[in-house]
Design a protein around this nucleic acid. Structure first.
Length: 154
DNA sequence: GCCAACGTTGGC
DNA sequence: GCCAACGTTGGC
């Protein structure tokens, strides 16, 4: 089993939004970065675990956990000219972008802030992309050791 | 294939 | 709202 982290701007889609969905499950659309896509398309498996990270907000940080509920399939929002994430180079015959389904698991009682995580960037979390300066990956792998260390902060 | 220009991300 | 860092685009 693998571990992941997904970023989302809470103004767009928060962990509470996910928890409020039918079956507490939603597709993770809008990823338009090749590295992130490859993780989703090639490596994610049902039941893999993932952190939900709130970005671009007052208190950026990890707010809870999810499970992968469905392996990758084409991101239909790329086909829709009216969608914010429309990509004319992607169509149903040759989809360029993919998404997985995620299922809400747990919301933490407190946010594990980016600031807090950064204090371990040269220690327990060395090599974790999230705490690397200038990191822009919206979907990234988390090692088993990093996953467990982060949970131990709660 | 290089690299400057541009657009986007995301912390602050 | 600013701006540094990064990915993508396109001219050459």
């Amino acid at each position: 089993m693998k571990y992941w982290l997904f970023k989302s701007e809470p103004d767009e889609f928060s962990i509470d939004d996910l928890a409020a969905k039918a079956k507490q499950t939603e597709h993770w659309d809008g990823v338009r970065n090749y590295q992130a896509r490859n993780f989703m398309r090639d490596e994610m498996r049902v039941k893999d675990r993932a952190f939900f990270y709130h970005s671009n907000c007052k208190e950026p940080g990890i707010v809870g956990t999810m499970r992968i509920a469905r392996t990758a399939y084409p991101d239909h929002t790329a086909f829709d000219p009216n969608d914010k994430h429309f990509d004319p180079k992607s169509d149903a015959d040759a989809p360029r972008w993919f998404m997985v389904d995620v299922k809400f698991e747990k919301k933490f009682k407190r946010v594990i802030t980016l600031q807090e995580l950064k204090t371990s960037s040269e220690g327990e979390l060395k090599g974790f992309p999230l705490v690397r300066r200038g990191n822009r990956l919206s979907v990234m792998p988390v090692s088993r050791e990093h996953w467990q260390f982060i949970l131990s902060l709660l």
